[in-house]
């Protein structure tokens, strides 16, 4: 048992080291001029998308509550944080925290009634709530109404976004690996059995929903201070964005955090490489989505998290094979 604890500690240390190395490498490449500020911006966007995807994965992948309104929470964070920094000159970090809290609260208010619904009915209801958030924002003249909110300062840097993304992943991963997180997963697996084991299913569904919404709110705050502009268009904060996030979750695998990270990175960078094919982007996405559901509904990586053990066992197997071969020849 202490063995398991030690390997966990080792794994965490390696993960932390890897996170630091990636950050260091990016900064070095930026200093040496290999990565331009445009590249750093794309990387920031990837980090923001990772936050959105991982937070939706907590709700949909781990807790099994299908949400089509995730962009609504992002919208709350995007607009609230912008209003706080522009109108009240609040420090960016404070604005981000408040945005996260506000989005989580709205998540609770929406989640309490909506999470009584199941499956496709829940999906439709969350889509409705997301759109209502959008229409309400559209009708607030102070934040630009239908024209959008302009003149937002650019506070989002790669370093900050990267840090907050790491925090998001660690918090959500640790939550899932706790008794509370297991309660959420048990709801996905079998809600009736979960209730019979003393799990207050409503409480945990709403909790997961609120945590996911909160991080989406923070991601929204980073997004509006990255773009310096936010508009209430469906593709920006509406259901098209919600579906975008959902596609990334599904492609990475429901209930798979590393899968979410990869699919968010790939699907953020891909359009940058395929500039000439911009109009084919959605065609490719939609075909991928359908093929995925038909042939591999569990996502590219399924439920297999990319972990140290997996890598170790892979390396071990390769070594073994080599060893056997050298045995045979000598």
């Amino acid at each position: 048992m202490s063995n398991a604890g030690a390997s966990k500690a080792k794994r965490n240390a390696v993960m932390a080291l890897a996170a630091l190395c990636i950050y260091g490498a990016v900064q070095l490449l930026a200093l040496s001029g290999t990565l331009l500020s445009y590249h750093l911006q794309v990387l920031s966007l990837a980090c923001i998308n990772i936050m959105l995807v991982v937070s939706l994965n907590l709700i949909t992948g781990f807790t099994g509550q299908f949400s089509l309104g995730h962009a609504g929470f992002m919208a709350i964070g995007a607009y609230l944080s912008a209003a706080l920094t522009v109108f009240y000159q609040l420090p960016f970090l404070a604005a981000l925290v408040l945005s996260g809290v506000a989005a989580a609260l709205v998540g609770i208010i929406i989640g309490l009634p909506a999470l009584r619904l199941k499956g496709d009915y829940l999906a439709i209801a969350t889509l409705g709530f997301g759109e209502i958030i959008r229409v309400v924002i559209l009708n607030i003249p102070a934040v630009g109404g239908p024209r959008g909110f302009t003149g937002i300062p650019r506070y989002t840097s790669f370093g900050l976004t990267y840090l907050i993304m790491i925090i998001t992943i660690v918090v959500i991963r640790n939550f899932i690996d706790s008794s509370h997180g297991r309660a959420c997963v048990s709801i996905r697996e079998d809600e009736t059995a979960a209730a019979s084991l003393g799990i207050n299913t409503t409480y945990y569904k709403v909790t997961a929903f609120a945590i996911g919404a909160g991080f989406a709110g923070v991601a929204g705050g980073l997004f509006s201070h990255y773009l310096q502009y936010i508009s209430p268009a469906p593709g920006q904060i509406g259901f098209l964005r919600s579906i975008d996030i959902l596609i990334m979750v599904v492609l990475g695998g429901l209930g798979n955090i590393t899968g979410s990270v990869f699919s968010a990175i790939v699907l953020t960078l891909l359009p940058e490489f395929l500039r000439g094919f911009a109009e084919y982007r959605m065609v490719i996405y939609s075909v991928l989505l359908i093929l995925m559901m038909l042939f591999r509904p569990e996502g590219i990586m399924g439920k297999n998290e990319l972990s140290l053990e997996a890598l170790e066992s892979l390396v071990g197997r390769m070594k073994n094979r080599k060893g056997m071969r050298s045995d045979g020849t000598s």
Binding site: G119, L246, V250, S286, I290, L294
Partner: peptide, 17 residues
């Protein structure tokens, strides 16, 4: 049903794009 619903969303996006 969720798998089918995601497929339906994919089909919708496909026809639109």
């Amino acid at each position: 049903r969720i798998t089918a619903l995601i497929t339906a969303i994919g089909a919708s996006l496909f026809i639109q794009s």
